[in-house]
Design a protein around this nucleic acid. Sequence first.
RNA 1: GGGCGCGUAGCUCAGCGGGAGAGCACUCGCUUCACACGCGAGGGGUCACUGGUUCAAUCCCAGUCGUGCCCACCA
Length: 892
Amino acid sequence: MSLDKTYTPHDVEQRIYEQWENSGAFACGPHKTSGGEGDDAYTIVIPPPNVTGSLHMGHALNNTLQDILIRYNRMNGKDTLWQPGTDHAGIATQMVVERQMEAEKLSRHDLGRDKFIARVWDWKAESGGTITRQLRRLGASCDWGRERFTMDEGLSTAVQKVFVELHREGLIYRDKRLVNWDPLLHTAISDLEVENKEQTGKMWYFKYPVANSDGSVRDGEFVTVGTTRPETMLGDTGVAVHPDDERYTDLVGQNVILPIVDRPIPIVADEYADPEKGSGAVKITPAHDFNDFEVGRRQDLEVINVLDHNAAINENAPEHLQGLDRFEARDAIVKEMEGLGLLEKVEENPMTVPYGDRSGVVIEPWLLDQWFVDAKVLAQEAIKAVEDGRTTFHPKQYENLYFEWMRNIQPWCVSRQIWWGHQIPAWYGPDGHPFVAYSEEEAEIAARTHYGQDVNLTRDPDVLDTWFSSALWPFSTLGWPDETPELKRYYPTDCLVTGFDIIFFWVARMMMMGLHFMKEVPFKDVYIHALVRDEKGQKMSKSKGNVLDPLELIDQFGADAVRFTLTSQAVQGRDVKLSTSRIEGYRNFVTKIWNAARYAEMNDCKPDANFDPAKVDLTVNRWIIGKAAEACAQIENAIDAYRFNEAADAGYHFTWGAFCDWYLEFTKPILNGDDEAAKSETRATMAWALDQILHMLHPVMPYVTEELWTQITDRNTQLMLSDWPKLSGLESADAESEMDWVVRLITAVRQVRSEMNVEPKAQLTLRLKDANAETLARLDTHRDLIHRLARIENSGALDGEVEKGSVTAVLDEATIVLPLAGIIDVAAEKTRLDKEIKKLDPEIMKYEKKLSNAGFLAKAPAEVVSEQKERLEGLKADRAKLDEALARLADL
RNA sequence: GGGCGCGUAGCUCAGCGGGAGAGCACUCGCUUCACACGCGAGGGGUCACUGGUUCAAUCCCAGUCGUGCCCACCA
């Protein structure tokens, strides 16, 4: 079998993936690699994508990084579990299905709850597999046999148990308070689901007439209040002034008449009113403003709700305004106030307006009975766990973000007035008393005890916030509340890989729930990666329509190229901006690897099981082995520190810069020669080095490496299950310095050739002047490859004078002499030398200045001083040789 | 109003107390027996600005300007 001339990812990827998956290679369990015992577990739970979703760039980055960690640890002998699954995404999914039904002119209420939910399940069955198929295309090595869905039976049991237990502990409670109401979706949402947007709005100043004690209006006496939402004035039940505000001292305790409504409302003294702002008096609308609600509680004000669930004016308002939409009502009220002569002024006002992140409409604070989680209590241990390092964030600075939010955490409103989700396990008696229980039967028993007789119970129609079930993901997917072997083995998980945008939504809540129910952190490390943004630096989102499709890129360039690009960009704390040219560049890298493998194959370089990299003779071979060891260590260190870009870099540079650019060229003379022993060692070394490359790059580029692994050998194994290289100790300093010299010699000759416009085909003579014995020995050892790569036909030491018409270059103690009589272009050579000198002189001055600085000599570490001295001497010697060369040139 | 981050080659970005780097783009030269998705050579940067610490600052500190994001109940 021989390798195809070109690598076509499209043909290969699907086949390879099926082979992996069908062989059971993804499955967890202590049966993995050939060498590893698999004693240590390594676990990652996938951030479950929305079941409605399809793969976007953020997923691609997120899952590429997880796959790197998983594949790397799997190769290192760990029993790895990458737990996959999807999220039911309550509101998002319900919206998708409702939108579909709109085409049939159906609402969910036409169907009824049961039928609607059945329809969502149908939809999930039909298109719920999209994203997991797409993750497969990316190459994700998840244990698909363990795939979970947040509304699976087992996970639903976990949700129920958590709700019931937290309720019994008093950490979930029902409360009537203002919540963020989405008037389009008709549900409450949590604080986090509200997006505050900067806008320029208006501030209207209304005059409220002051009333006499008998209720009549005092002529010409008003209290001015400002508002950005005039429609809420219909629900005003008070006006607050600061207790120390002397302007209003006399009015406290009296009433104003609320215009339009003609209701007397009290003027109260409350520190909430800021004398500095506006008139110093503020209207209080407890039913429609979070602050006002608090003031109302303190001041015992009436709470009058004037909006219905659509945020239209309801029956508590004057008849002529009822039924108007909130914004229509706003206009109408302003107009009416103006007509009454009670509009003092209107100002432009910069403000932040709350929008629902799903619906995109303005959110209304609305008074409702809802279920709340006492996050303040649960946060305590979660804060501690990060403080004491049981869980560590990478990069570390995200811990601040976490702390800040956790320390100021608010009660978490978890009930949602939608149908798709986990229905809250609460039943109400006739008087509305709630019974939280595992089943209706249990609730009935509790009710019987409570009421002393059988009563009819009604189940709470609400469902839980989607993030409630996501918060349990690290243990619910492992079987909790059952004490499964998996739970014991894989919890706590090792690393959570996610974007900073869901630290609050998800990470924080997993920490709270994990610690509360498992008594252990859900993950030891949290790796926060950057967001993949669009070219304007904006977050990609479906609603903005600026989403790039990773699948198209995979089609175009292959999954490996896309993965490598994302990895090379995955720098801690910096956003990823994708450019096609970059992906193209790494697609070329994939091709390069392929071609290198083809070359090895053509030269009969087959892996030899008996090859021992510690026992090779030839310097070139020891050199590439040492380089492989270095690269491998760099990759290990990089992955261990979650510096993915550095891992990608190290692999790239070793493969292309060392192996392809130099090693394959270095060894051509050997492979074409007739020294059988050298040939055989070199073949084995090349095959070995290529093997190391396949291993090292596998976590990032699984497909091409696996394909080559299976194609270039007849070993019946999978690369993904083979052992990570253990190369420490194979580094070779002497081979390194020797080959480095060869590289510099060749480069120097090439430079001269290029700048002198020497005919590319011309074979030159090379002489080394003033070369020491070691240098001459090196020339001798590597003569063949030097001749080949620098196009030299004859080389050796130069004993006499440099002959006229030679070009020279400096290489350590020696001078490279290239007799170019007849070819040399004097002017060009002078230009070249001048250029060199121009580069050197400022350098020399810099070091001279530094070394003449007494402070430097006295305070800098000795090794720094001597190093700088050496550097200066080297530069000076180079400079002297350049002068000599110039002098010789003058003779011509 | 708080908080976090960023400003390094034309573009996208690494690096970071003692010799300025990569990919792409650009220039020149190559059908060199793996690869033109290639090979070789090259041009290009007061490392935003100002001040401080230090023997030494692109790197540490302070401030300024520009820019991005997160949080916040500002009538």
